[in-house]
């Protein structure tokens, strides 16, 4: 006994799709030059394995402020301040991009365009520009995260504003509430938990971003990482990556728990 054959109707379509995907693939492959690969790659891999299995434990805590824990704390601080800044900045953008009754469509679509333009702007470029303004260091990283996250948070905020239930607003108005009552008893109780939940989600991403800001000199753990990479100090690289992994995992767990309690 055999299983029934799949329906034949879409054969031609499937074959065409496969051919198109293959053509794209071949086109992509043909254009990449692979001659840049170092002949020493294998030795490098061996020394990486050697370094990663014997991380530089002495770097974890030296008490001078230039060790792993101090820099991870600094990275976390950058992420916290950047996220708080962007969540405040995103509120007006969110209301701008949200479609609401009795408003011209051009308003909300212009807001949506602006927030998607900000989303495209790579965070690293923002960091480099803020470095030009305030000098290298953590503050430039905070500003980059604060501005860069507007694109994503404003999108989320505007979506939850659009999805807001108008029932409570009408009830408050029907019971004789004024505008302030509407804000405090209908709008905020609905929006605050959602906004907080999105902000926490963005915070998880910001922690990851904050670890790479140092690659361009905007503070945090990325700076010693790029030095260790350039010096091929794989034991140092190993301990830094380990630190990042642990920090990101712990933050994800805490923030996930908090978000569960919010929603």
């Amino acid at each position: 006994m055999t299983l029934p054959k799949p329906p034949k109707g879409n054969r031609a379509k499937t074959i065409i799709t496969i051919l198109v995907v293959l053509a794209i693939f071949v086109w992509a492959f043909a254009g990449i030059s692979f001659n840049g690969i170092k002949a020493t790659a294998w030795q490098t891999v061996q020394s990486i394995v050697e370094g990663f299995t014997h991380p530089d434990w002495g770097y974890v805590w030296t008490g001078e402020g230039e060790d792993l824990i101090s820099l991870l704390v600094e990275t976390l601080a950058i992420a916290i301040l950047g996220t708080i800044m962007s969540s405040l900045l995103s509120i007006p953008f969110g209301f701008w991009a949200a479609r609401s009754r009795g408003q011209k469509k051009i308003v909300s679509s212009s807001g949506k365009f602006v927030s998607s333009a900000i989303r495209t702007f790579p965070d690293i470029i923002l960091a480099l520009m803020f470095i030009k303004m305030v000098g290298p260091g953590s503050f430039a990283g905070i500003l980059a995260l604060g501005v860069g996250a507007i694109g994503m948070l404003a999108k989320f905020y505007s979506e939850s504003i659009e999805a807001m239930d108008h029932g409570p607003t009408e009830s408050v108005v029907a019971a004789g509430g004024n505008k302030a009552n509407v804000l405090f008893f209908a709008t905020l109780p609905q929006l605050v938990p959602e906004f907080l939940s999105y902000t926490l989600y963005r915070f998880e991403i910001a922690v990851r971003y904050a670890t790479i800001l140092g690659l361009v000199g905007a503070g945090g753990i990325g700076t010693p990482l790029i030095f260790a990479l350039n010096a091929r100090a794989w034991d140092r690289v190993g301990i830094i990556l380990l630190g990042i992994i642990v920090m990101v995992t712990v933050i994800d767990i805490i923030s996930g728990k908090l978000r569960q309690r919010l929603v």
Binding site: I32, S33, F34, G36, I37, K38, A41, T44, V45, I48, I124, R208, Y209, T211, I212, L215, G222, L225, I226, L229, N230, R232, V237, L241, I244, I245, V248, T249, D252
Partner: peptide
């Protein structure tokens, strides 16, 4: 898989540039 997911792309790329040398291969 969860460990891999905690490392940002740019960090991965920085590590692979050190391994394979400068070029698109490390990025891919």
């Amino acid at each position: 898989m969860n460990i891999i997911r905690t490392i940002p792309e740019l960090l991965l790329a920085a590590v692979f540039v050190a391994v394979f040398g400068i070029g698109p291969f490390a990025g891919i």
